[in-house]
Design a protein around this nucleic acid. Structure first.
Lengths: 361, 361
DNA sequence: TTGAAAGCGCTAACAG
DNA sequence: CTGTTAGCGCTTTCAA
């Protein structure tokens, strides 16, 4: 078996408590015993067992992360940001995926709770009505939403929730306003399924805002399955007919925009000559393409970074509270002081958008 | 505090042993006690605490993953494959990043070992001489390399190691042979730093193989920092001069290829008109671009999937062995029966390569 | 089929 | 400054 604190104590000729003390507050041990113990540790190749520590301490210095997928760069970058920040704060990361299936969200969280993670960062399909979040709240586990943007109205609910995101609606509105500014009047939104992503819906609202502000007639969004347009026959028809064809496409994410561009080429249409395409996310490869994909850039890695730091804040604020809570009745202290972090977005201009062809006006 | 098996037992009027039994092998408990216990579990919202179980059982049903970065889609997809497979086998994933710093590899693994993960999947800078792998071996922790490809020669070492990858050298050779087949004779390899990635070196060997087989003069590779060519002034000069300029570029990864194409455009060069560009990795976005990025496709998600399954195999094979080992002396049983999984690669043709312009021949 | 009890590795009182 | 001891949640003999 792997060496434990016990073997170290035995070899050093001290008690296990002394070893533990050295590990936790080195100052409380005399120089020479410290020396002896260090030698034993080195000799045995001892490495403290977090499992024992966690069981005793009731916390694991581990956070859980639940995102839809890693196939979308956006989430990969976010996870990257989380990991970096976690490492800096001496936390570990346990990671899960839902494949955009709302029913997998709960299972993922249950598993993490079994591991007694100290908190959870998640991106859920719909933050508005979500059983998983209720579960987390009931269990009094601190959590922070990433990408999901809490409505301002939620600020009034019993317990405030925390989220880190851009202002999806405003950002989408900016993007569409940019297209309108270029002269586009017939703008179609292409979106991921609303029921798989509340962000998609918020972005559609932003689209509506922009269209209405300009006095233009908004079109219903075309919802498509995960980054593929092949199934959307109504879309294909619309594109085939020059009279119904929009002059610009606004896509709820960059992967969608990229596949849309590919499909348009297959239809023999030029971007931006025949039609402009704008994305959302600002994934790095978009800037390497020709033409550059115009998009709304969200700071994904920073979203992860801020989410983690917010979470750890909450965890460490909750710690003393938990101790206090063991005295009186269940203290109704909110696990997390609701923070709606809205990070700045930016418009990335690119060759994929241009003023509409004169004939279209 | 969260309910434990103890509270459940108390509420159900049985002993904790019985509750534990029900949780582990339900058959060994009478129907009516089972019923009582289930009710208590539901009433209390009890959830087994893995920490306790792990401490007792000595295993955690958790694997550690160490990759250089998630900014490269390749690793994100691999992690995705790992997570999916892990979930199917009821394992959890603890995840870390090294930012391509070899010195961070050990720290990452140390942390994972502290959490008593049952095994580790990693991509290291250099699998040949690597202190981290030695550590893992010394600690008898099963591990599987992903992307790192063990040399056939390693099959003879004391303990065989496991790896899952494509045949980097052969794959690179295929790619360069393809370029040669199109008529290119002056082919330059652009590579990530050899000391940050042994794959890059293996791919360069494949380049040499192809050049030599065709009787062409190979050029030294140009090593560049993580996906940016801006610093490589010698490269800029070579490109500026039509006489020294290669007719084709072979890049050790797709991100590099994409930025190379961007830089070439900035220099006023056409791809593939003035110069062909071929990548390695076959990241999905490459196929969405115009022109499509020709590349060697490696099955990243599958690499993750196979790596995890190989690892779990080893873990579960080691379990009974560990029990047996507590009887006699340290059994010198290799933790893992060295498996060099070589997964098939594929050439993705794309518009980024074409025969060289006649003048160049 | 069930219960009592020991112990996994560690921390935190409490004594000395 | 150091040792003794109890116990975190759980599994697992060993008896009954």
């Amino acid at each position: 078996m792997r060496p434990s604190i016990k073997q170290v104590a035995h070899l050093a000729g001290v008690s296990i408590a002394t070893v533990s003390r050295l590990l936790n507050k080195p100052g409380s041990v005399s120089a020479e015993t410290a020396e002896k113990i260090h030698r034993s540790i080195a000799e045995l190749g001892f490495r403290p067992n977090f499992t024992g520590r966690n069981l005793r301490a009731g916390n694991s210095r581990t956070v859980g992360v639940v995102v839809p997928t890693l196939s979308n760069t956006v989430f990969a970058q976010c996870l990257q940001g989380i990991e970096l920040a976690a490492r800096a704060l001496d936390y570990s990361v346990m990671f899960t995926t839902t494949e955009y299936l709302p029913e997998d969200e709960s299972a993922a969280v249950e598993l993490l709770l079994g591991h007694r993670v100290d908190g959870v960062i998640l991106t859920v399909a719909d933050a508005g009505a979500n059983a998983t979040l209720d579960l987390l709240e009931r269990e009094r586990i601190p959590f922070v939403l990433a990408y999901n943007q809490l409505a301002a109205a939620d600020a009034g609910t019993a317990i405030q929730r925390a989220s880190v995101s851009v202002d999806n609606r405003a950002a989408a509105c900016d993007a569409v306003t940019h297209l309108i500014g270029l002269g586009h009047r017939r703008i179609q939104m292409l979106s991921g399924r609303f029921n798989a992503s509340d962000r998609a819906m918020q972005r559609y609202c932003g689209y509506l805002d922009a269209m209405q502000a300009a006095g233009l007639a908004p079109l219903p969004a075309i919802e498509v399955e995960r980054h593929t347009l092949t199934a959307a026959t109504d879309y294909q028809q619309m594109m085939a007919d020059p009279r119904h064809r929009p002059t610009a496409l606004f896509c709820s994410n960059d992967l969608l925009a990229l596949s849309a561009m590919r499909d348009l080429r297959a239809l023999g249409l030029q971007v931006p000559g025949d039609i402009s395409v704008m994305g959302f996310d600002g994934i790095p490869v978009g800037a390497l393409m020709q033409p550059v994909l115009a998009s709304v850039v969200q700071p994904s890695e920073q979203i992860g970074d801020v989410a983690l730091r917010t979470l750890v804040d909450a965890i460490e604020r909750a710690l003393p509270a938990a101790v206090a809570a063991s005295l009186p009745v269940e203290t109704p202290v909110p696990v997390i002081a609701g923070v709606r972090h809205i990070l700045p977005h930016a418009l990335r201009e690119g060759g994929s958008v241009a003023p509409p062809a004169p004939a279209s006006c």
